[in-house]
Design a protein around this nucleic acid. Structure first.
Lengths: 331, 331
DNA sequence: CTCACGAGGTTAAACGTTTAACATCATGAA
DNA sequence: TTCATGATGTTAAACGTTTAACCTCGTGAG
């Protein structure tokens, strides 16, 4: 609770001098400097960042909005961003939108009021309309993971199309022809791009995927389970011999369904996931999956943010991070 | 960027009046109130929380320090706390200590400077010394998951002792006598308490556990694998027929070791884990484990924090949340 | 001996709120 | 008629910093 004034009084100087010593913003004589430091440690002085932020119009705080920070994928992004923030002496405010645009909007408001220096967000809505709020106020932001069509802004994405393509190609190379795909909510670009990659690979192989092979999920394990149950119930002639699940959680749900059906992976059904979450290597059999540089995405988002805070009017940067197929034992 | 002054000017009143309207802290005539609101929306006015915090000495921001927010256990706690914070219009600053007391200390400093209203932490160090910083400044805080001996403070813990006891009892009830235990780093109270529960149950059953049955791990899957390999290599007469792993990750490592040894779960060896992470229900066979109310712990931590912010000098509350045995097919 | 200058200190005005204290005015009781 | 009262507005002082502007010396050049 000691304030600049207290330190100044104890050191017998003005508060301006103390400030100069603390920030090194102006030369101060050695004796005075020593007295000031003595007072600082004696009083356990800590600068008040609110006051500083108010005056400097820079808070050294960033905001992160994700649909669900308990989801390992977003948790990893958050971790990457937090690490970068800490390294640059920024703090991070964490927000969960639950995929609800209205909640996201409220959080944007809070972050603005909190005067954060920048915002990273995995947007809950598919259109960039709600970001006008940020743009007109000139608040730096970067969109992560999900592309917003027609938005002029920094963004960092994984190459989901490429990922879907690689996964499917891998299954095709293993000799599979009847390959199913369990998608995410289709209006989210990561999901849609993965499916596009799947279709592209199939097309290149001269296969027209049956409509029933493409099942819609919601990125949660439960939905993968249900989709897989449906696929397994198809008549043998059209039943898929391989499944590409658009994320690992749904792949794990799929594993359960396959196990319960008394089938074996990969002998009866091959399986590829997406994300390479930690669990993927621990399930039995270990899951072949497409790894995204999740942590890296968080870090990079932070870097772009800091860079833009420095120079507000650089042209927007678009980063497409490449993914990589991790072959394990489920294929 | 519009400020109170701008709103006041447009509405033709003083800034005090605007403040009263916005906060409803004093009655204002209907016409004036209407003019103020008109100006507020026209200008897109947003209060500056820094200024407000500076003046009110309340920021409506909480801090959370965990070892690793990407770890699903802590991520879930964070989620619980964040949800509660949002519901009460608080923001949450997320900090990762990496289990390093020095880093934790730096974060404490940052949070203090940030003038957070309260701090929840899963402490990285085993002694409460570093919390003196908070106590002498009277900053509300609550310790979560890990107990700090001799600390007078709010805390929320899972009943790890009970969990260890339940797990072991369950194995005893199944007829097992030679039961091993794979522990975590022993200086962390959650791990130590689980082992105590194990010993208590064994003692009640009149069994003196052999020293070799208690193997130390580090909560990671790899260490569970190694510990299990050792246990399986024991001569048949003392080789355990059941294993209690102090967390699910190590249990999963154990499963791998058992599988590689050509043994079957639960026929040859029964297995119980701890935590009930998502994966536990997806491995084959699904893992019997002890579930902690993780999300609840986060929420409760938030509740205690807010309660203490209201009334700083209540006696400290100690919450021991009960755990529950989830029986699946590994036993 | 002046005087410009640099070094090293201080003063005071912001930053955007909240809130105690004060001003004004109509109202109704005495 | 007078005056306390309540309703509703304003003024100005905080909150804890940063920083431009100013002040005061001693020093060395002219």
């Amino acid at each position: 609770m000691a304030t600049l004034r207290d330190v100044a009084r104890r050191a017998g100087v003005s508060i301006a001098t103390v400030s100069y010593v603390l920030n090194g913003t102006r030369p101060v004589s050695p004796e005075v400097e020593a007295r000031v430091w003595e007072a600082v440690v004696a009083l356990g002085y800590r600068p008040n960042r609110l006051a500083r932020g108010l005056r400097r119009k820079r808070t050294h705080v960033l905001g992160l909005i994700v649909p669900d920070s308990a989801n390992p994928f977003f948790a990893e992004i958050a971790r990457g961003l937090e690490d970068l923030s800490f390294a640059h002496d920024y703090s991070l405010i964490l927000c969960n939108s639950d995929g609800d645009p209205a909640k996201e909007q409220r959080y944007l408001g809070v972050l603005i009021e909190q005067q954060v220096d920048g915002i990273a967000l995995v947007s809950a809505s598919a259109t960039p309309a709600h970001l006008a709020l940020l743009q007109e106020r000139g608040i730096p932001f970067v969109v992560v993971d999900r592309d917003l069509p027609g938005l002029e802004a920094d963004c960092v994405l994984a190459d989901n199309f490429q990922g879907g393509y690689l996964a499917t190609r891998h299954l095709l190379d293993r000799g599979h022809r009847r390959i199913a795909c369990i998608t995410g909510p289709s209006d989210l670009t990561p999901s849609a791009d993965r499916v596009r990659g799947y279709r592209k690979a199939m097309e290149e192989a001269g296969i027209e995927p049956l409509e029933v092979w493409v099942r819609r999920g919601d990125f949660r394990a439960e939905s993968g389970y249900h989709a897989a149950c449906f696929l397994l119930s198809l008549p043998p002639s059209v039943r898929p011999t391989a499944i590409f699940a658009c994320n690992d959680l749904m792949a794990i749900g799929t594993m359960r369904a396959i196990g319960e059906a008394g089938l074996s992976i990969p002998r009866d059904i091959a399986l590829v996931g997406f994300d390479d979450i930690l669990l993927a290597s621990y399930v039995i059999p270990p899951l072949t999956t497409v790894a995204q540089p999740t942590y890296e995405m968080g870090r990079l988002a932070g870097e772009l943010l800091l860079r833009r805070i420095q120079a507000r009017d650089r042209p927007p940067a678009r980063h497409l991070l490449s993914v990589r197929l991790v072959v394990r034992h489920s294929t």
